[in-house]
Design a binder for these strands. Structure first.
Length: 218
DNA sequence: AGCCAGGCCTGCC
DNA sequence: GGCAGGCATGGC
């Protein structure tokens, strides 16, 4: 495709038309997005939902209450989300960071330059590229595009070549899309939704909305 | 029964 | 600077 901007926008419109508005991220507060972003690491969202329900029935979903909750009680609440030992540590750590560095509110990150805010998040143990961008975009509402393994797999199959590394993929999207938080939010959610149905290890391409683009490189 | 989930860290090379 | 191995539960 000669015009990348056209390609990324057209792909977005095809997905949006096919799947509709995804209403991401499902959470009541910015901090709930943070908690969900940690809990969903390599874990299905249905399991995360149970964990968040448990957690809400146990304590308030605020940095202070998560930081102060007894460690064993936290682990027990989030057990359905798996990896509960390290995720409990990570929730404690990011809660402490929000309390100590952000005056208790994750949204204070929006006062910083985007890349500075991003590097702040990346300095927290257990927060990698994707988790940082998810928090920036869905909790803080800063225009940071989220890349995940689905994005790389899907766009690789559709024909994007020679892009290597998380930051290169992120820049590719951000350099070729309008700086629009709504589009960033929706696009990532649509890629995830699409990837649940298509572009898996098996060539499940029947009735794929992307069949006009896809090189079917299996 | 095994593979996969809305990743990340560590240790080795 | 890349890459396997570990982390743990639930659905299909």
């Amino acid at each position: 495709m000669e015009d990348l901007q056209q390609f990324f926008l057209t792909t977005y419109r095809v997905l949006l038309n096919y799947y509709g508005h995804q209403k991401w991220w499902p959470a009541e507060t910015g901090f709930e997005v943070v908690v969900g972003a940690i809990l969903t690491q390599n874990t299905s969202w249905s399991n995360v939902e149970r964990a968040i329900i448990n957690l809400k029935s146990t304590t308030a979903l605020t940095p202070k209450s998560i930081f102060e909750i007894e460690h064993e009680k936290l682990k027990e609440s989030i057990r359905p989300a798996g990896f509960f030992n390290q995720k409990a540590d990570r929730l404690k750590g990011i809660s402490k960071f929000i309390l100590d560095e952000l005056g208790g509110d994750i949204k204070n990150l929006s006062k910083l330059d985007l890349e500075v805010a991003r590097n702040n998040l990346l300095s927290i143990k257990g927060v990698g590229d994707e988790t940082a961008d998810s928090i920036l975009l869905y909790a803080v509402e800063m225009p940071s595009f989220v890349i995940d393994k689905y994005t790389i797999r899907m766009f690789g199959r559709v024909g994007v070549k020679g892009v290597k590394g998380y930051q290169s993929w992120r820049r590719l999207f951000m350099d070729n899309l309008p700086v629009d938080i709504g589009i960033y939010k929706e696009y990532h959610a649509l890629i995830v939704e699409h990837s649940k149905n298509f572009c898996r290890s098996k060539p499940l391409c029947e009735d794929c909305p992307m069949e006009n683009y896809c090189k079917k490189l299996f």
